[in-house]
Design a protein around this nucleic acid. Structure first.
Lengths: 328, 328
DNA sequence: AGCGCTTCTGCAAGCGCTTGCAACACCGTA
DNA sequence: TACGGTGTTGCAAGCGCTTGCAGAAGCGCT
């Protein structure tokens, strides 16, 4: 593999000039630039990122920690993050933590010297630990608000509020909530919202789960929900809801005639044929992009600067998957 | 961040000794080792991978190129690959290519200097291009046999054969195949198998799709399949099949009374409640592990060595999702 | 002609680590 | 006692790049 020196020799200039031609072309005379580029081309030269990282202290990597990859929500975030990072010539290293605090901590410490910043999706570490890392490398939190860190969340509770309202309006009194993983900050948040609403409107809420947010888990819980007498069910995420509905189909439970359904995200529901399903649309990709762009800002901007976090708004799609309760 | 030198000073030895204590402890006297380790601990020292990469030419990264992350099959491969790589202290960089030859080529060339080897899942590049890269960095192919490269595939066609046999035995004459993405070598392979079987048994096969292997796409095609008069349907992957069955449920099409179903992988079907579904179980995780272990072998072993590829066997689960055709 | 500028380039040090080589101590053996 | 090992350590070079500094041109001005 050709090195800077090889190119320098080939182009008849010094290595420094080649280096500058590569990373700060504006510092180099047009004519030299052309010569250097030609030489580089001829030799098939590519800068060695490890060497560059060594001198600059920047690796060109961001790390994205995700609980798992099976969840399409995370997959979407990851994909979007990669794409945006690519635009500034960076890569995103995805580390799967399984939602396990130990693995998350391990990934953080292990990657600390290899990346320029962290985006932690649904972090399970303590705020203190995250802040600690943040003292050395930019850290942004996704899907959970962490004091002291730039955080991006989604206003799912707000969106769900709209759904509850509609349910109340339709006359539902007995509503099921199928909960996601207990480690999820988001899920806890939503349940709090639920309880509050319940109190306000004299809804009775029955919580099912918690479960892994997987299709099969949804399917496995469907019967229990159907038998519970609840006239509507809200589900932690769309994949789970598909599982639930899948099983409803097999059990002969009709939506919405027998039971109303809604999900807290929209990912897997997006292109479904037939009558649309009530969902709180959560911009997973935007979450990924926001995180990367915040990291980029921190790395490229002046040292102390910490971009503002945001709570991304959701849009709620109310459809005929919500109907008056059977007995009403 | 503490460096080797800092530790050396702290422990009262030379930097070389610290280096050896870190990477080849057996070369260092027990007593020194203890001292060095204590010093390192005290200073919170971690070796700088970029610096190490610079001298050794090894980054400790493998790259895994996948078409997309939404497909649970790929997600499973990726997760397994990461886990195994972790055992030898390596990381897997996941690059999403979208199944696009250009992006695949770009990822290959961009990552070439940053990783110790490539695992390319369902490669779409030409064999020549892949071999070219392989001349400089180990490359293993997953899900496609590439001459000159260690390749790992799954014997899905073989498994499907068993399913066909069973269908014929049950009296089916008109079978649907819902095809996956046209870029998929595997899919082409399966269709070839299908045609061959069809000829041999006087089956009539109707191909639907190709479609993206996503739940919604399956659901979208379900009606067409149901209306086609086929008495059985084989589906490219399990996620698609779930989509199909989901819609069947809504359409009132009963499985297996109205139509028999089977899928070419088992991922999303695994923990489903209720009567199991006929599937060719494809060991996605094993694929990921095999690839990583081959790469490891090439990197750690002697230069010219190229591990043998394998075609992983599938196990077929025949269940009551296959039944005699309605009209039979 | 001489001055201060700006623009471009090269020198050389250094990023943090690995590793071939040589130095040294210490051992058992001849 | 002298010798070849063996085991342990340090020296120093070097991996490929970046960057502060200073020198060399070239410029428009007075």
């Amino acid at each position: 593999m050709a090195s800077l020196d090889d190119v320098a020799r080939e182009a008849g200039v010094s290595a420094s000039t080649v280096s500058r031609a590569m990373s700060r072309p504006s510092m180099v005379a047009e004519s030299t630039l052309v010569r250097v580029r030609a030489a580089a081309e001829r030799l098939g030269f590519r800068v060695n990122p490890a060497a560059r990282a060594l001198t600059t202290g920047r690796s060109g990597f961001f790390a994205l920690l995700v609980p798992d990859l099976d969840n399409p929500f995370y997959a979407a975030t990851a994909t979007a993050a990669q794409d945006l990072a690519g635009e500034s010539g960076r890569r995103v290293i995805i580390a799967v933590t399984g939602g396990d605090p130990d693995r998350e901590a391990e990934a953080l410490s292990e990657l600390e010297s290899q990346v320029d910043g962290f985006a932690v999706q649904s972090p399970v570490s303590s705020a203190a630990d995250l802040q600690e890392v943040h003292r050395r490398k930019p850290v942004v939190a996704i899907n959970r608000r962490v004091p002291g860190l730039t955080s991006f969340t989604v206003d799912t509770p707000g969106g769900l509020g709209t759904v509850y309202d509609r349910l109340v309006e339709l006359g539902h009194r007995e509503v099921a909530y199928l909960a996601g993983p207990p480690s999820s900050w988001m899920d806890r948040h939503r349940r709090a919202e639920l309880v509050e609403h319940a109190a306000r409107y004299q809804l009775r809420v029955r919580v099912f789960g918690p479960v892994r947010p997987a299709f099969a888990e949804g399917a496995a819980t469907a019967r229990e929900i159907a038998d519970s007498g609840c006239t509507a069910v809200l589900v932690y995420n769309s994949l789970l809801l598909l599982g639930v509905m899948f099983e409803f189909g097999r059990l002969g439970v009709r939506v919405p005639a027998d039971i109303s359904v809604a999900a807290a995200d929209d990912i897997a529901l997006a292109d479904l044929p037939g009558p649309p399903i009530t969902a709180v649309r959560t911009p997973a990709d935007e979450l990924g992009r926001a995180a990367v762009s915040a990291l980029t800002e921190m790395v490229d901007g002046e040292p102390g600067h910490r971009p503002r976090g945001r709570r991304l708004p959701t849009t709620v799609r109310i459809t005929d998957s919500l109907a008056p309760p059977r007995t009403a």
